[in-house]
Simulated scan of single mutants.
Amino acid sequence: MHRNSQEISLFDHSTSSREREILEALGEVYSLIIVLDQVEKAYLKDCLSSEEYTSTVNKLLAQYKTYLADEEVAKEFGGLEQFRAKYQISASNAITRLERGMPVTVEHAIQTKNSSTALSSNGKNISGKAVAEATGNFITVMDALKLNYRTKEKLHPLMSELLLSINRAGSQDFEYRKKLVEWTVKINKMNISQSLEDSDARELLFDLEAAYKNFYTLLE
């Protein structure tokens, strides 16, 4: 028996081109969440190296933020938990990573392959290149706060890069890491339209200055 095949349209004929763009963007966000969850599981099963995992997750997080930087897409998205509930997404590993806003290797200082290292006077392994990068990143974030940078869009990438560069500097314990991670997560949970309160900005600057001084004591 011959059956007529009929193409099924993803959009109603009355859907505007802009509405289609928004829906397509949300579809990409959905796909990113699913892919991120698989990457998280692959890393937990030791199927990915720390380097591969970190690079992939950073790329996925950047794409996720890029789509949601569009105000209309973000409005339709509504929030991670709302989006998750609406589409019944059960990707718990990905949801956690999106809430934290950084790879687990960055959050917990899991070492990746370092560049050339040297020994500090106390015998700890130190990456000279990463020390310079971390120093520059500390100064960059502190200067940004002094210049009244307050939004998630501006501060979160700087904080993430700072943590990553501190990790690259060596495997020694860094007592202010937890505090910097907490600030990075707090900023990541802000809405695009939100800004840090002046009191929070002053507290963050204080913690950064203390962390910067402590970082150098580890190099002595």
Rank of each mutant, 00 (worst) to 15 (best):
V131N: 00
L36R: 01
I126K: 04
E107M: 12
I8L: 15
V106K: 02
V185G: 05
F11V: 04
K186P: 00
H108V: 14
T15G: 05
S165T: 15
K65W: 12
E133T: 09
L23P: 11
L162V: 01
I8A: 09
S90G: 10
N191E: 10
Y176S: 11
Q194P: 07
T184L: 03
L196A: 02
Y43S: 03
G79T: 07
K189F: 00
K65G: 07
L61K: 05
T135E: 09
K186A: 10
Q82G: 12
K45G: 02
V35T: 11
E107P: 00
S121D: 08
E71P: 04
S165H: 10
Q63V: 04
N137G: 08
E175G: 09
F174S: 01
M1G: 15
T56P: 02
A210H: 10
D207W: 10
G101P: 03
V141R: 00
S195T: 12
D198C: 06
A211T: 06
K86V: 03
K146V: 00
K113R: 15
K86N: 08
C47R: 15
A85D: 14
S160W: 06
G170D: 01
A144F: 07
Y30E: 08
H156Q: 15
R100C: 06
L48M: 10
T66A: 08
T184S: 08
E7A: 13
K179C: 12
K45V: 08
L60H: 04
K178D: 14
I110M: 14
E99Q: 12
L68Y: 00
N4F: 14
Y212R: 06
S171H: 02
R84P: 07
N4K: 14
D70P: 02
S50C: 06
I192A: 14
G79M: 10
V181K: 03
M159W: 07
Q82H: 07
E72Y: 02
A109P: 01
L163Q: 04
L36T: 01
F83E: 09
A211C: 04
I95A: 07
L32M: 04
H108S: 12
L155R: 01
A201Y: 02
D46W: 01
G128W: 06
E52F: 01
L60N: 03
F206G: 06
E203L: 15
K124G: 05
L36Q: 00
A130T: 08
L10M: 11
K213E: 13
S116K: 15
I33C: 05
Y216P: 03
L180D: 04
S17F: 12
A42Y: 02
S14T: 14
N214S: 13
L208A: 04
A132N: 13
T151A: 01
T151P: 00
F206Q: 15
E220S: 11
L180I: 10
N137Y: 12
A94C: 05
E21I: 09
L180G: 02
E81Y: 12
S50N: 11
E220T: 15
E175S: 12
A169W: 03
S92R: 11
D173Q: 15
S121V: 10
M159F: 07
I126T: 08
S115L: 14
R168S: 15
Y53H: 13
E175Y: 14
F138L: 13
L164M: 08
R202H: 08
R177C: 06
L48K: 11
D37L: 03
A130F: 04
A42K: 08
N4G: 15
K186M: 08
T112A: 09
R100L: 13
A118P: 08
T56G: 06
